[in-house]
């Protein structure tokens, strides 16, 4: 994969046609070219990827690009090695994790996940209101119950009382939430399949409508939002239990 990167450039040092990040003829690290994380590894923008193969590539590229192995080169090459190897590490860290990989792809596709959340947080701060979060419909009832119980727990704690039954009940709900979050991962893989199908068709020269892309993206955005919602909920529960 990576080592087969396109040989459209020639090495600055020996002039041979080279792989993307280092020269196969003389081993020299090349100046970094702008590339997204998928392209860095020579991968299409598909979400279902072979993590074992990715790890193998990561190790192989590390052996070429890492600053420790380029410590005796001149200043310029050391600079390239530092940049290339940080890019490699950033890309590997992002792509090996299913959630980060999905978020990154959506970002590449122009979805501003973080900006949306940041804007909402800032607006909430400016207006002094609690940040409004859209409760996923399938969680409405549970969230309502849980919030009541958390409120009760905080009250008890304030009074210095202990309510083992309530704590147990909250603990049980937390477990359920965590199971739900796990289940979302499986759901996500189905969404990946849809997305990868579109990319596969594009690679085969077929036309994919913007509508289809948007639909596939929106499903994943929705899923990530639901997952984040559960994650924040679990965090609230943990805080309430600990304090």
């Amino acid at each position: 994969m990576a080592t087969q990167g396109e040989s459209t450039h020639s090495c600055w040092s020996c002039g041979a046609m080279r792989a993307a990040h280092f020269c196969e003829a003389c081993g020299k690290v090349q100046p970094p070219a702008p590339a997204d994380y998928f392209a860095f590894f020579g991968l299409p923008r598909k979400l279902n990827l072979d993590v074992a193969a990715l790890e193998k590539d990561f190790y192989e590229l590390s052996r070429k690009l890492h600053p420790d192995l380029n410590a005796r080169t001149d200043k310029r090459e050391q600079e390239w090695s530092l940049e290339q190897s940080s890019l490699l590490n950033d890309a590997y860290r992002t792509l090996k994790d299913p959630i980060r990989r999905t978020q990154y792809l959506l970002q590449l596709e122009g979805v501003e996940l973080e900006e949306q959340s940041k804007a909402a947080t800032e607006k909430a701060r400016a207006t002094g209101e609690a940040k409004k979060q859209i409760v996923p419909p399938d969680l409405l009832e549970e969230v309502f119950d849980l919030n009541m119980q958390l409120e009760e727990l905080r009250m008890h704690k304030k009074m210095g009382e202990d309510d083992p039954a309530l704590i147990e009940e909250i603990g049980r709900q937390k477990l359920e939430l965590e199971e739900k979050r796990q289940a979302l991962l499986n759901e996500l893989q189905a969404d990946w399949k849809t997305w990868d199908g579109l990319i596969g068709r594009e690679q085969a020269g077929q036309l994919v409508s913007e509508d289809e892309r948007k639909q596939a993206r929106d499903k994943m955005v929705d899923l990530l939002n639901r997952r984040n919602y559960i994650r924040n909920l679990v965090r609230d529960v943990n805080e309430a239990l600990e304090n």
């Binding site: 600053p67 530092l82 190897s85 940080s86 890019l87 590490n89 950033d90 590997y92 701060r125």
Partner: peptide
Amino acid sequence: VAGGVTDKIILRNSTVPASA
């Protein structure tokens, strides 16, 4: 960031070199 909150840009246990 605003409100005295920390916005984490490189998480602990990230392989170095790392960038954001």
